[in-house]
Each structure stands twice: as structure tokens, then as C-alpha cells.
């Protein structure tokens, strides 16, 4: 007999890379359940503030609830402070929001990309219950196990154990970072059945937000 389960994993991968003056956030547009593809064109990227973009994978209904909640909290913030929330502030808010539901978690795996108060690229990476870390680049979701080691190999970030703390941003130029993201997804799509169809790339820099798409394997 079928028992009720409140969770599902709808797959998908998310990547974010921070540079000196830009941030690249990308994710595929496939939504699947088990071996089924539900739709090939579902965005997992959500713009929370002018300089703050969230990419999440996991359970789509929880993703949607989380996005709605953060958007509502951000609206209140704007009314109170008459400004957009900064990316580090949104990073902390997301962590708190996830931990608030520690014992009935949002089954979502998030990366938050944006520009910090100095205009430098920043990436925050999370687990489902809110522990988070500022990093130079990160991957989350079903293809993260394939993408993350590749990024480690290509980007060689300074050890977080070094003192004084080294800057985590990657040395790549913006176009190099976009190419790297495309390569990551092209590779992950080969081996991860939950990643594919289309790649949505959002680039954030001083000039604003720019979006582009790249087709991926559809099988």
C-alpha cells in the first residue's frame, strides 16, 4: 500500500561562480521525478534582490515556498529600510529561514550568488537545514557530485585554513567563467539523468543582470 510521503526530489543542478566584479549563477531547466521528466522548461533561478540571485534544486514545492517567503521578507525589508537587501544579508536570512524549519525541513539545496557591498562577486552555499559558507564557487543539486570536483580542479581556490584569510573569488574573467559553467553542465548532463534540456545562465555585474540560455542534451 502506498504511504504518504511529503517529499519528492525533482533533481537539477545549480552552479555559481564569483569573480572580482561579477557573479555567474546557472542551473538547468529540467524538472523530473524518479525516472520521469515532468517538464523541460522550468527555471530554478529566482531573483531575490537587485544584487542577489538564488538558484535551488531539490523539492520544487519547497523551493517555491522558500522563494515566496524570502520575497515577502525582502518586501518588508524594503519598506522598513528603503533599500535593497545586500547579498550577505540575504545569505544570513536564507540560513535562518532554512534553520527555522530544522525539524520539517525545506528539502532544497541552494546556492546564492550576488555582489557584496564592495561590488565583489560572492557565493553562499547551503545544506537543506541552513548551515552555510561564503565561497568563491559552488555547485548544488543532483549533478553537484560531478560538477564540484571539476570546479575544484579548474579553479584551485585557496585553502580556507590559510591565515590571514585569502580572497575566495576566482581569478577568471567573466567570459571565462561563463564558458566554464557551460562546460560543467555539458559534462554533468552526460552522466546525470536529472540534469539536462536547457541551461539558464544569469550574469550579475556592475552593469546589471544579463540572462542567456544554452541547449543541453534532452535524453
Amino acid at each position: 500500500m502506498s504511504r504518504f510521503s511529503p517529499y519528492d526530489n525533482n533533481g537539477g543542478s545549480c552552479v555559481a561562480i564569483a569573480g572580482a566584479d561579477y557573479c555567474v549563477i546557472a542551473s538547468d531547466t529540467r524538472m523530473s521525478t524518479g525516472y520521469n521528466i515532468l517538464t523541460r522548461d522550468h527555471s530554478k533561478i529566482y531573483k531575490l534582490a537587485d544584487k542577489c540571485i538564488l538558484a535551488s534544486s531539490g523539492f520544487q514545492a519547497d523551493m517555491k515556498a522558500l522563494q515566496k517567503l524570502l520575497a515577502a521578507r525582502h518586501l518588508i525589508y524594503q519598506h522598513q529600510h528603503n533599500k535593497q537587501m545586500s547579498c550577505p544579508a540575504m545569505g544570513q536570512l536564507l540560513s535562518n529561514t532554512l534553520y527555522y524549519k530544522r525539524f520539517f525541513p525545506y528539502y532544497t539545496f541552494n546556492v546564492l550568488g550576488g555582489l557584496d557591498n564592495e561590488g565583489k562577486g560572492c557565493v553562499y552555499t547551503y545544506d537543506a537545514v541552513g548551515s552555510y559558507e561564503r565561497v568563491g564557487y559552488s555547485a548544488q543539486g543532483s549533478g553537484s557530485v560531478l560538477i564540484m570536483p571539476f570546479l575544484d580542479n579548474q579553479l584551485k581556490s585557496p585553502s580556507p585554513l590559510l591565515l590571514p584569510a585569502q580572497d575566495a573569488v576566482t581569478p577568471l574573467s567573466q567570459s571565462e567563467a561563463i564558458d566554464l559553467v557551460k562546460t560543467c553542465f555539458a559534462s554533468a548532463t552526460e552522466r546525470d539523468i536529472h540534469t539536462g534540456d536547457n541551461l539558464e545562465i544569469v550574469v550579475l555585474n556592475a552593469g546589471g543582470v544579463h540572462r542567456e540560455f544554452m541547449p543541453l542534451r534532452r535524453d
Binding site: P6, F59, Q60, A61
Partner: peptide, 9 residues
């Protein structure tokens, strides 16, 4: 769906 999963196509 019954767990609130939704999409358009």
C-alpha cells in the same frame, strides 16, 4: 500534485 508540486507545459 498532492504534495504541491506544480508546473506549466
Amino acid at each position: 500534485s498532492m504534495i504541491g508540486l506544480s508546473f506549466v507545459d
